[in-house]
Simulated scan of single mutants.
Amino acid sequence: MKQEVFIARHAQEWATLERWLDRYEGSRRSSKSRLSPSEDGPTELEFPARYRRLCQQLAIASGRGYSPLVVNRLQALMERGHGVMYRPPAPRWRTVADYVLAGFPRLVRANARCMLLAALLLYVPMLSMIGAMQVYPELAHAFFSPAEQAQFEEMYDPTAAHVGRDREASGDMEMFGLYIWNNVSIGFRTFASGLVFGIGAIVVLVMNGVSIGAVAGHLQAIGYGAPFWKFVVGHSAFELTAVVICGGAGLRLGLALIAPGRQTRGRALVEAGVVGAQLAMGGFAMLVCAAFIEAFWSSNGALPAVVKYSVGAVLWSIVLFWLWRGGRGVVDAH
């Protein structure tokens, strides 16, 4: 290959890498933890492949006796890239923090279609059931036994000191453990059931929506809606959103089995499984946060409604803004 053809073929790639390295080194000098890349710049995952390609190009240029200007340029790029490629690993806490603040929300947005479908499968049955219960309150008998109805009504009795739990229930710490077990088990079932070609995830999401909507609709219909909404408004931002994310991860598994594209089903399932597991782990962490809020905040019936609703609004805003904007337009720079 002639030198002119070689340069024309790879010049744009070299220029892109140079700009990215300029910004990377500038961010390190200014102690910034993140780097805003150009649209065609490498991401953290793409950089090793680009660095290896650069080394190959340097070997070709040197072996064929290309101009010292070309060889020296590639040598300088290789040395700068070496500093990025083999930099000391970031502290574990920072890796976790970067994933929570940026990597996880980016991953959720990258699977937006699955997330939207999961949200519809959860919220449409939930809202439909709440509305149906107001028109046909007798529907409660089709979903709950008399004992279950009595239990729900006792838990959300406006006179109860601790809303959302039995009068004989254990203390906050023990309830925290129970909530973690219950929440994470629901999230795991929602995710893992996607292996049944996505049908399992669909069923679990719809059934959860129907169940939550039936309880909420029944309590609203009998006049116990205020204590119920005060109880759920705090932790629902993390809990419901996490269920949607786990459901979206499960649908991602099912989609890989139904439409693997040009890959084999096994290969597509492995790749979807890696992405789905990352989504599910983030969802599980959100469910633990929801359990903490539910045990130590939501159950306190003495707090005024305005406080409960205000905190709930803030938590919903934080969760939605985090998933919408977290990590947008940045890549890891350390």
Rank of each mutant, 00 (worst) to 15 (best):
L120K: 08
M286V: 04
W324C: 08
Y24Q: 02
L116C: 13
T43P: 01
L117Y: 08
V307F: 14
V135Q: 05
G131H: 07
L269R: 02
F292G: 11
R328I: 05
Q12W: 01
A97S: 08
R113W: 12
D157A: 02
V319E: 15
M207W: 14
A110H: 12
V233I: 14
Q149T: 10
E4W: 00
L178H: 13
E44I: 09
M129W: 03
H162F: 14
G217K: 13
Y224T: 00
E25I: 07
I7D: 03
W324P: 01
R106A: 06
N111D: 03
G26Y: 05
F176W: 15
L257Y: 06
S310K: 04
F47V: 02
R165N: 05
M173D: 08
W229C: 07
V135Y: 07
L287A: 07
T190R: 11
G194E: 02
V71R: 12
G26W: 06
Y179I: 01
R167T: 12
A11P: 02
G213K: 03
V311T: 13
T264V: 02
A15N: 12
S62L: 04
L120I: 08
G282Q: 01
Y86M: 10
V100E: 02
S67H: 09
L178C: 06
S170G: 09
L255K: 13
F176M: 06
G247I: 01
A201Q: 04
F296A: 03
R9E: 11
C289R: 01
A15L: 10
A305K: 05
S317E: 10
R50F: 05
T264R: 08
Y224W: 09
L74Y: 01
H162M: 10
L121C: 15
K308D: 11
G225R: 15
S236W: 13
L107C: 04
E138T: 05
A15F: 09
L74K: 04
P89L: 10
A272W: 01
Q3M: 11
E79P: 00
T241M: 11
